[in-house]
């Protein structure tokens, strides 16, 4: 009885080790690639009218005249002591800059998931249990259409209707000037609409397959109540592939939704990362790379563990 949990723990540990190695590789690549981009923080901070002498002065002040490997080694040394360094541009600690934006993105992601999961589950089950029915066809059509609408187009329409015409909701978060929950309603609706089709269709396929599986048919023959069959046997089987899909969605949301953040002037990690790359602010870029690696590892690990819990007889962590 103890073998499975131990195997799961070992597998999870191995996954974390692999992920750490991946992060190390990613951080080297990100550091190198950002350094290859034209321009550096000194030039970008000073703007286009700066003289070469001014750029050289600031470059020295920021330590950008030091060799790249030396700067990378410094960054790694700091990281090992839990210090992500300071922004080249603002002088603020990287952890504070990235962490401040992560809160906004996590809230947005959390609210989107609270709406997305039940809606996708409901739509997927409804359609999957009645394949080919008018309900299935109608739901599939609507979901595909919703998925096909670009985020920015949907956002603009929602702002035009609910903010500019009806005046019910704020049009933007104004870069953090507006912090009430209502500023997140339209961004959440855009995110949910964008991802709903993908997740609901995945659930639909899972329900369709599991519903016809031999063991489910057998349970029905045994006379088990339909709701027990659905909740205890169909949904867990259908959920397995959907959980991986959901993990990808969560990962992408936590990585920052650049279009939505720009459209609603939300100061999240997506726009923060774009700003950092634009400013060639290497320590901050590295901070975001670390965050992305951590969220990807964490989300996928949670997804695997949930899958293992739902179907313990399957090798989901192997």
């Amino acid at each position: 009885m103890l073998a499975a949990p131990r195997r799961g723990t070992r597998a999870a540990g191995a996954r974390v080790l692999v992920a750490l190695a991946q992060f190390a590789a990613v951080s080297v690549i990100v550091f190198a690639m950002t350094s290859l981009l034209p321009g550096d923080a000194a030039e970008i901070v000073l703007g286009r009218d700066a003289t070469p002498e001014q750029v050289a002065t600031l470059r020295t002040q920021l330590g950008l005249d030091r060799p790249l490997p030396e700067r990378f080694a410094d960054w790694v040394g700091g990281l090992l002591h839990g210090d992500l360094g300071r922004s080249l541009v603002t002088g603020q600690p990287v952890a504070a800059e990235v962490g401040g934006r992560l809160g906004q993105t996590a809230l947005l992601t959390g609210l989107a998931l609270i709406m997305l999961v039940p809606l996708a589950l409901g739509a997927g089950v409804l359609a999957g249990r009645r394949p080919g029915s008018p309900v299935d066809r109608a739901l599939t059509g609507v979901l595909v259409a919703a998925q096909a609408v670009p985020e920015f187009a949907l956002g603009l329409v929602l702002v035009a209707v609910f903010s500019l015409q009806l005046g019910w909701l704020p049009a933007t978060a104004a870069g953090g000037a507006f912090t009430g929950a209502e500023v997140l309603v339209l961004p959440v609706v855009v995110l949910v609409t964008n991802h709903l089709g993908r997740l609901a269709r995945q659930i639909r396929v899972g329900v369709l397959d599991t519903d016809r599986a031999e063991h489910v048919v057998h349970l029905r023959r045994l006379g088990l109540p339909e709701r027990v069959v659905l909740w205890r046997h169909v949904l867990p089987g259908a959920a397995l592939p959907s959980i991986q899909q959901l993990a990808r969605i969560v990962d992408s949301m936590l990585g920052g939704v650049v279009v939505v953040e720009a459209l609603f002037a939300l100061p999240g990690v997506g726009s923060g990362f774009v700003d950092a790359v634009s400013a060639r602010d290497l320590p901050v870029v590295q901070g975001y790379a670390l965050l992305y690696a951590a969220t990807t590892i964490g989300v996928n690990l949670v997804a695997d563990l949930v899958s293992a819990r739902l179907l313990p007889h399957r090798e989901v962590l192997g």
Partner: peptide, 21 residues
């Protein structure tokens, strides 16, 4: 007086027309 950063022009316009700024 509050300066708010809104890079996207559509968002700036939306904020103005909705009375946010």
């Amino acid at each position: 007086l509050e300066f708010v950063p809104i890079d996207d022009e559509d968002a700036r316009l939306g904020a103005l027309l909705s009375g946010q700024v």
